Computed example of a mutant assay.
Amino acid sequence: MKTRIQELRKLHRISQEELGLAVGVTRQTITSLEGEKYTASLVLAYKIAQYFSLSIEEVFDFSQLEEM
């Protein structure tokens, strides 16, 4: 699943480690999300979106899921 996590992190000048700590996951989880190797749970997606004061849809691209 495509995300804007890396873009948003760079915009806010925070590391993967900082974001992971803020939302309760490891740096490796953030790396996997950014590399599209892992799909966030609804709870994690909510926490990440809330961290950036955005909606889940503004952070995660669900258009590919509709094709399945």
Rank of each mutant, 00 (worst) to 15 (best):
I48L: 06
A49N: 03
E17N: 10
R13L: 09
V59E: 03
Y51G: 04
R27M: 13
G24R: 07
H12M: 06
L33T: 08
F52T: 04
A40I: 08
V25P: 07
E36H: 08
M1Y: 06
R4N: 12
G35C: 13
I48Y: 07
R13M: 07
Q64L: 15
L54Q: 07
I5M: 03
T39P: 02
T29Q: 13
E58P: 00
L44A: 07
Y38A: 02
T26K: 08
F62A: 11
L65M: 14
R4H: 07
K10C: 03
K2F: 11
V25G: 03
S53A: 07
T39M: 11
I14V: 14
V25Y: 04
L54M: 11
A40Y: 05
F62Y: 14
R13K: 14
Q16R: 15
T31E: 12
F60H: 04
L33D: 08
Y51K: 05
V59F: 01
Y38Q: 14
E67C: 02
M1H: 10
L44T: 07
M1D: 06
F62D: 05
S55L: 10
S53Y: 03
E18G: 00
L8C: 02
L8Q: 04
Y51P: 04
F60W: 12
T39E: 14
Y51N: 06
V23Q: 09
R13F: 06
R27A: 11
Y51I: 08
S55C: 02
R27K: 15
T26H: 05
L65I: 13
A49D: 05
E18S: 11
L65G: 12
V25S: 03
I14H: 06
T31I: 15
K47G: 01
T29W: 01
T39C: 11
G35Y: 09
H12V: 06
E18H: 09
G24E: 09
T39W: 02
F62V: 11
A40E: 07
A40S: 13
A45N: 01
Q16Y: 03
K47Y: 10
Y46R: 13
L8W: 04
G20H: 08
M68A: 15
E34G: 09
E67Y: 04
L21K: 15
L33A: 08
L33F: 10
H12Q: 12
D61Y: 09
L54G: 00
K37P: 00
T39V: 14
S41D: 10
R27L: 08
L44S: 04
L11W: 00
S41N: 07
S63N: 12
Q64V: 09
Q50I: 01
K47D: 14
T39R: 12
L65C: 10
Q28Y: 10
A22E: 10
Q50W: 04
S15N: 05
L33P: 05
Y51Q: 06
I5K: 02
F62R: 03
